[in-house]
Design a protein around this nucleic acid. Structure first.
Lengths: 216, 216, 216, 216
DNA sequence: TATGAATGAGTTTTCATTCAT
DNA sequence: TATGAATGAAAACTCATTCAT
């Protein structure tokens, strides 16, 4: 009986927690990061402001948990993309993961926005250090999959790298990210004359060609 | 007489305007974008807060003008880099302009920061549309130089493009930009294990190799 | 059977009550009065916040009971000091009680702090009037011992009072208290150049000399 | 013209500043220190909350200035009391200053309350260090007058001190203060059965007698 | 044209208390 | 009796913008 009650409570608590994170994600989707207030989050979650603080010590901690959630989703996508093409060439795997990143950025805009904003604000000072570490580790983990594909390509002789596979993976990530960020603004989209997706693919392909030891 | 006075006045007005922009740049350099207040700008320009509003309708407009200024500097750097290597290969010109961009990002941090933050906030709604157009045009102009080098390389047969030279220039810009943004946070610098400059060069070279029709 | 159960229940209830008071005292010791929250008290007592309210109607009532406890301890100390020196001169007894007060203030800081803060806040309005009376009575009881020694000294001709023994006892208490309160702040300690203990003793001795009918 | 305007402005600014301090003093008089909010101060001064912050960086700084004002008044009273009885005995001077302190505590309750509360809160951390020094210095200055009278009394052979004149002055201040603080609460007033004034005088006289080398 | 005082909505955070279970 | 989730009224402070002079 009591056990059942406790379980239900824990379940409800977890649901409430999730509801707050969902509300924050929605708030982030409609407003920008800096215009999103605890007030709005509480309102969207249909609870009082004070309640939010029962679940998250402060704004930064809430956002860090949201970010962690996003990173988890991305991580999973990358892993799936990798494993789905286990028997294909590394290049195919690389392309699949790249595509997964694009999809993630499009389908989970708030998460993507949060990853970008991670540097801003006083995250490091205001969140528990282990949470900070988790965010960091999860970021690294994502890149590990990319690194692996690039390394395999190099070992097979498909790629001829100008730096370590890890650094190259970083450059790849940076290039893809750069294309998304550049076209985040509609005006630059208009200026370049491509959709985010199109520029992303162009960056991706040019970069992959740059990895090759010969023209395919 | 009156004409002279009017001229002096106009000159003084322009100087005051410039002083405000300078003050804003300094403020941006010392604090972050969101910490920079109109208060601080006025103080640094040694005028009153109200006066700032005589020269700029609101904060966003002020920042847009500052951005315009930064774009002018960048534009000039790119042009010089291009023209200095007029007699070299397009690839050399491309590299020179890329290097100019890196230098700009390092030596004019506030301007660079502003360009990056351009999408955030409510710029578009708060500044006059012609100012917005100007920003757009000047951004375009910068890319024109890159486009030119790429087009020449393609015409010479050095590069084999996967898209128009203009779109390729956009991808190039995006990749370089991406490397700078990714490593803006020290923690990601640590994670990748490269300096901003190193990743920048790696991105640049990989991309250039990706443009080539053969391995150099 | 039922009686036994009822007794056990009453005993447990009393223990719980005491646990809360203990927790409050600890909380008061580590934080300041205004920083001490019901949250912290409940946590230290390892019960829920709601339960605290089953035992004490509100924060002020809880603190009043804690105060009562502290007064009890002080009372006991004074009595012991008095009785230990039953066969000595009244002056010795007075000194012994004074010393007991100093010791109390040093060893039971939370209680002392509470006595001092008694006037602040909205105690009177928020606690039951009989509780208030109890606090008052117990405060009085402490002073009774001091009063007794002073009266005896006067009766013996050692002291020549300027007012009733009761009023004089009040003045004595006030002087001792004043020395402790004045040097509660380290900066005033520095300003005066004495430790709390030293000023306490100086106040005590000067006052006692002031009670004397002649210079000893 | 401009000079006149500037003067008027400075005058008005000073008046507004004073109005805020007055409002704070009133707020302090009606509520307790901890219940006095910036909101209330602003309302009493009939200005907006933001305006208060134009004149005082934060709450503590405002209170420190108020305290400084109070200390100034007290200082002046002590000095006047001293000088008025320049040709009388040191004991008379001491009594006059003591009386001045009593009067001050009665007529300027908020100031007196503030002096007492100086230790509480985070004054030291939140106010500029020079302001803190000023408060300290002014506190010291007050005691200097008391010290002088006591020293003179000792030099004349009227007083026989048990410690340095400075330390004795501290003990005197502590005793007087203690009587005021003890009876700050009506219940303790009732318990002792004396008015603040009566206990104050009793403390004063007992202490002075304690200073004497013989019974007057 | 220039000033700078004033505004007030907005932001995060705290905490004593309540109440359904 | 006990829980602990939820509340909501404060509280301090910020800052872009306005406006009388």
């Amino acid at each position: 009986m009591t056990v059942v009650t406790a379980q239900r409570r824990a379940r409800e608590k977890e649901m409430r927690r999730q509801a707050i994170l969902d509300a924050a994600r929605q708030a982030l989707l409609s407003n920008s990061l800096r215009r999103m207030s605890m007030e709005e989050i509480a309102a969207r979650a249909e609870i009082s402001k004070g309640t939010v603080y029962l679940y998250f010590a402060n704004k930064e901690t809430l956002l860090a948990h949201l970010l962690l959630e996003g990173l988890g989703i991305l991580l999973h996508s990358l892993k799936r993309a990798y494993e789905k093409h286990k028997d294909d060439t590394p290049e195919v795997r690389l392309r699949a993961m790249s595509q997964a990143y694009l999809t993630f950025s499009q389908h989970h805009e708030p998460y993507f926005q949060l990853m970008t904003a991670f540097d801003k604000g006083q995250f490091q000072e205001r969140i528990p250090s282990d949470l900070y570490q988790q965010v960091l580790n999860r970021s690294k983990e994502g890149l590990v999959w990319v690194d692996r594909a690039i390394r395999e390509g190099a070992e097979r002789g498909d790629f001829r790298l100008m730096a370590s596979s890890w650094h190259t993976a970083g450059a790849f990530w940076a290039a893809l990210n750069g294309s998304l960020l550049l076209l985040a603004h509609p005006l630059r989209r208009e200026m370049i004359g491509l959709s985010q997706e199109q520029l992303f693919l162009l960056s991706q392909e040019t970069f992959i060609r740059g990895l090759h030891s010969h023209i395919p």
